[in-house]
Amino acid sequence: MKQIDYTWHLRARMAAHGMYSTTDLQPHLADRGITLSREQVYRLVTGQPQRLSMHTLVALCDILECTPNDLIEPHIVDTTVRKTAGKPAGVTPITARRTTIRRPGTES
């Protein structure tokens, strides 16, 4: 099974262009028709976005004079799934357990 992840290099690309604050990016995005709140820009710069509009990605590439490959570095790792003989991986067998039903008013 392959496990995928990525590294987001927006902050490093911004620093290379002399932009050290998240508020430096907001007017450049607005010039290209991308309206994001201050909080959205902060999360975009400091975190790894799970979803990103293609328009926003293209605007970032235009602002920072780079390609999407410069912003996103994919990591694909092959992971092995350990299987036991005759049992699917990750499945715990269910064992029967004897239960005793006790009704009120009866002693056992």
Rank of each mutant, 00 (worst) to 15 (best):
K2L: 07
A16P: 09
E73M: 09
L60S: 06
K2C: 00
S21I: 00
H55N: 13
Y6S: 04
L64A: 07
I72M: 10
G33A: 12
L36H: 10
A30L: 13
V91L: 15
L44A: 00
C66A: 00
L60I: 03
C66S: 06
V77E: 15
T84C: 15
L36F: 09
G47T: 03
R43M: 01
C61W: 06
T67M: 12
K83T: 15
P88H: 00
L44N: 01
Y42W: 11
L71Y: 04
Y42D: 03
P93S: 14
V77M: 13
R103V: 08
R51T: 05
A96Q: 08
T46N: 11
T79I: 15
K83A: 12
K2P: 07
R13L: 10
Y6E: 07
A15D: 09
H55I: 04
E65I: 00
L36C: 04
T92L: 11
A59G: 02
T35N: 12
V77Q: 15
A89E: 13
T79W: 07
S108A: 14
M14K: 04
E107I: 00
V91M: 14
Y20W: 10
H17N: 14
T46P: 01
Q48C: 14
G86N: 08
I101F: 00
D24F: 02
L25C: 07
E65G: 03
K87W: 08
P68H: 03
T80E: 09
G105N: 12
G33Q: 06
R11T: 03
H17Q: 13
T7N: 10
W8F: 11
I4F: 08
G90L: 13
P104Y: 10
R13S: 07
E39Y: 01
M54W: 01
V91C: 10
D24R: 05
H17L: 12
T22E: 15
K83G: 11
H9G: 02
D70G: 02
H9D: 00
M54E: 07
I63C: 00
D70E: 05
T35V: 13
Q40P: 03
Q48S: 11
P104F: 03
D78R: 09
T67P: 02
T99G: 03
I94E: 11
Q40A: 14
A16R: 14
S21D: 09
I101H: 05
S53I: 02
A85E: 13
T23S: 15
T106M: 15
M14Y: 04
G33F: 05
R51D: 02
L71Q: 03
W8K: 02
T79G: 09
Q26P: 01
A12D: 02
P49C: 08
M1R: 13
G105W: 11
A12R: 11
P104S: 04
D70F: 06
T67L: 13
K87R: 12
P104W: 06
I4V: 11
P68K: 09
T56W: 02
C66I: 06
R82E: 11
